[in-house]
């Protein structure tokens, strides 16, 4: 991971957000005019957040939840009655012989970006 975070903390302006790159990561298709609007809106939101960077949080532990020491628990791994697969398959847009059907994956032109590349491969793998 490349970190330019250190430079950011001292910086005056919010970083320029690469909307097209982020949209690819998020698997969102943006229309040209939406790209422009998104850029403007996200930029103004980031500008608004600048105050956060005035805080010194160097030695602060992050909180990813609401409680100190709250532990997530798992329930016992034992067989019990639940919904049958037919009930869930009813929600699936395309089913054949109780398999979830999707268009063929991994056939697209490999264009830009490493992330996109690996992501597609991952999906292709998941599909098999």
């Amino acid at each position: 991971m490349t970190l330019n975070a250190g430079a950011r903390s001292e910086g005056k302006a919010a970083p320029k957000i690469d909307v097209k790159h982020v949209a690819r990561l998020a698997m969102l298709e943006l229309e040209p005019e939406e790209t422009e609007r998104m850029q403007r809106e996200l930029q103004s939101i980031l500008e608004h957040m600048k105050e956060l960077f005035s805080l010194d949080v160097e030695d602060v532990e992050p909180s990813f939840g609401s409680f100190d020491g709250a532990e997530l628990r798992l329930y016992p791994d034992e067989l019990r009655l639940g919904l049958c697969s037919e009930e869930f398959l009813r929600s699936v847009p395309a089913v054949r012989d109780s398999y979830v059907m999707v268009p063929r994956a991994g056939q697209e032109q490999r264009s830009s970006g490493e992330e996109n590349h690996s992501r597609r491969e991952l999906q292709a793998k998941n599909e098999r």
Binding site: T2, N4, A5, I17, V22, A23, L28, L42, E61, P62
Partner: peptide
């Protein structure tokens, strides 16, 4: 869409520490 974009940005390589992690610390 706006929030998915904002969140994806805050978690993306290069900005995770500056945004998401910082926010978690402010929390």
């Amino acid at each position: 869409r706006r929030r998915i974009m904002l969140g994806t940005f805050a978690l993306s390589a290069g900005y995770y520490d500056a945004y998401y992690l910082r926010a978690a610390k402010v929390r």
